[in-house]
Amino acid sequence: MEAFAGRYQLIDLVGIGGMGSVWRAWDLRRSAYVAAKVLGQHDAATLLRFVREQSLRIEHPHVVAPHGWAADDDKVVFAMELVQGGSVATLLGDHGALPESYAAVLVDQLLHGLSAVHAARVVHRDVKPANLLLDATGTGVPHLRLSDFGVAGLLDEPRMTRHSTILGTPGYLAPEQLAGADPDPRQDLYAVGAVTAELLTGERPGTDGKLPHVDGPLADFVRHLTAKDPSDRPDSATTAGRLLAAAGAVPSPTTQPWLDTPDTPEVFNQLPPLPPTWTPTGPRTRNSPDLGSHQPARPPHTQPPGPAAAARAAASPEPGANKLAPETAAGHRAPTPQPAAPPERSRGSGRGMWVVAVGCFVGAVGLLGSAVWLLVR
């Protein structure tokens, strides 16, 4: 099998997103499976967003950020860790409303991830269930990872889109974000509040800004995070984490209260079985053990959907819900972000050299500031 740009062997398609397709791939340099997002020819604005996304490198257990990229002819690809459990949108579609304790663990992990993102002076701007990936943990403690930084904004940096362009997903956007305000971490916190309401009720926020009604210990938490005036929201993800802890909904690390509920949430391995020429440890060789392509978890959609899943399936699908299916609070502190080392890069041939050149050029122009506006006008 020929490797893309001499590095990534694309194995099978696992998702389709707004900016390209997502493949399970084998990274020859790392000798590991990765998720590879492949983009074809795009306009300048999309290319700028791509170059900026692959420049992010935030090392945190609850963040999935690109760690390498390559270009070949008229296509580009960037790679990130392969997450097997699908997204929170998948979980909600299969299960519906989640137990309060389970939802609180997910939100707590999301706030930890956002603490690291914001500490790196990045605003995600598209926090929603489809961009929250899950490890395949079964009925155990879930492990969430924030992904897809394609429309992320950098604090105190020139805007890469016109003021009239609204980036993000309706229903999860703060009012000032809809009005075209500059990136602000409190916009992400509004989205966290909207996501929390969805986790607890199984209902998506309305595109008109109306949120599902939430009762119980997390009602005040949702109300504070989704305040229309950003000054009425917590000033940081760390402060929001303390507010979540004060609600008393996050269970201790040694307990799993959701196991006692009638319908326990379960996160399955959502990836299809590997092709016969591949094994869990890489390409099949003559000396490979005869493990076939069996996966430790069952393939997706083998469980008949319940009433909640059927009702959600009848509704319009959330935009970008299949973008990447390869996708405590007490004393909550922002983890120290790692230095933003440039992602690894592999060069292809032909027009790929042009894409690499554009990436370097955009990086340089970004440092100059005002010149970026010339690229997007």
Score class of each variant (00 low, 15 high):
Ile16Glu: 14
Pro289Lys: 01
Pro296Gln: 07
Val117Arg: 00
Leu13Pro: 05
Arg345Asn: 02
Ala70Arg: 04
Pro337Ile: 06
Leu48Ala: 15
Val64Leu: 09
Pro262Cys: 11
Val192Ser: 05
Val141Thr: 15
Thr161Asn: 10
Pro217Ile: 09
Val127Glu: 10
Leu56Ser: 03
Leu225His: 09
Asn287Ala: 14
Thr137Glu: 14
Tyr102Arg: 00
Phe4Ser: 01
Leu167Thr: 14
Glu327Ala: 12
Asp188Ser: 05
Val51Trp: 08
Arg223Asn: 09
Trp354Cys: 01
Pro234Trp: 00
Ser55Glu: 12
Leu374Trp: 14
Ala116Arg: 00
Ala247Lys: 01
Leu375Asp: 09
Gly359Asp: 15
Gly180Tyr: 07
Ser293Met: 06
Gln54Ile: 11
Pro129Ile: 07
Phe221Gly: 00
Ser101Lys: 03
Ala240Ile: 05
Ala79Met: 02
Gly350Asn: 11
Ala70Glu: 06
His118Cys: 08
Ala181Asp: 13
Glu81Pro: 02
Gly168Leu: 12
Leu133Ser: 11
Gln41Trp: 09
Val51Asp: 05
Ala174Met: 09
Pro275Val: 10
Pro183Val: 06
Pro326Asp: 07
Pro265Thr: 06
Gly209Arg: 01
Gly153Ile: 06
Val127Leu: 13
Thr285Lys: 06
Leu132Arg: 01
Ser316Pro: 10
Phe149Asn: 03
Arg24Met: 11
Leu132His: 01
Gln54Thr: 13
Pro212Phe: 13
Trp278Cys: 03
Ala116His: 07
Ser316Asp: 15
Pro158Ala: 08
His95Gln: 12
His42Arg: 13
Pro183Asn: 01
Val222Pro: 04
Pro205Arg: 06
Gly168Cys: 09
Asp208Tyr: 09
Asp12Thr: 08
Thr201Arg: 13
Pro183Gly: 12
Thr255Ser: 15
Leu167His: 00
Pro283Phe: 11
Ala89Arg: 02
Leu39Ile: 13
Leu134Trp: 03
Ile166Lys: 04
Leu13Met: 04
Leu106Pro: 02
Ala227Lys: 03
Ala311Asp: 13
Ala119Gly: 12
Gly113Ile: 09
Trp278Met: 12
Ala194Gln: 09
Ala136Tyr: 08
His294Val: 15
Arg351Lys: 08
Pro305Trp: 10
Thr302Phe: 08
Ile166Cys: 10
Arg204Val: 13
Tyr33His: 11
Arg333Ala: 15
Pro299His: 02
Thr90Ile: 03
Asp126Gly: 10
His67Ile: 08
Gly366Ser: 14
Val192Leu: 05
Ser31His: 14
Glu203Met: 08
Pro158Glu: 07
Ile16Thr: 14
Gln270Cys: 14
Pro217Trp: 10
Arg223Gln: 12
Asp156Thr: 00
Leu111Asp: 02
Arg30Asn: 00
Arg312Met: 10
Ser115Gly: 10
Ala246Glu: 13
Thr328Pro: 11
Ala246Arg: 04
Ala35His: 05
Val267Cys: 04
Val127Met: 10
Phe149Gly: 02
Phe268Ile: 13
Pro299Arg: 04
Gly15Gln: 00
Phe4Cys: 09
Leu146Val: 15
Pro142Phe: 07
Gly216Trp: 05
Gln41Cys: 08
